[in-house]
Amino acid sequence: MNALLATVRRDILLALRRKSEVLTAVFFFVIVTSLFPLGIGPEPLLLKKIAPGILWVAALLATLLGLPRLFAADHVDGTLEQMALSPSPLGLLVAGKILAHWLLCGLPLVLLAPVLGLQFDLDASALGILTLALLLGTPLLSLIGAIGAALTLGVRGGGVLLALLVLPLYIPALIFGAGAVEAHIAGLDVGGHLSLLAAMLVLAAFFAPWATTAALRVALE
């Protein structure tokens, strides 16, 4: 457990020394969501209807933006090989890296989403559901994305390939995450959506570090 926390602390420290990388994804999220009203038009009713989808798709893309960096730097300078050789299980260290990635790339999106939701005229309770759904959904995105990041490590055209591999797997999170907010706006119960998101998160938390570790071992061979 100490090894996991040490990995989290190390990755966060490294990221804070190079703030621009983290901030890029956050600004990307803000800019993309602000582009949609410009493309669609300023009708409040329409914008309110499409807000959950826009915010979720933007969150997907912003998470994707940070993924190639998850293992790349450690792979280049040999840290990853040291991790694979270290006495702590690689799966635990990988889980730490994924957690750090979520804290750096996912959590800022969760915190920003309510502010951006105001742009789309969502009311307070809808903003609450949106934040809750993102809180459950963004770790899921980091976990699934880590598998893709490990598979494309050091591969030609890795960034675009990563999007091709990971985005289809993100679809369930998108459907239930955006669906929760839409159901709330329509006056339906959101418990089912959030429970399914949580179930997928638990499933991914169990399997994804394992699959990521297997993929990293393939890349390190």
């Binding site: 055209g157 591999l165 993929a215 393939v218 061979e221």
Partner: peptide, 15 residues
């Protein structure tokens, strides 16, 4: 995208 066939096989299998 992966040149080494052994690595391509294993990565593809995981995917």
């Amino acid at each position: 995208a992966i040149d080494d066939p052994r690595r391509a096989d294993k990565a593809g299998a995981i995917l």
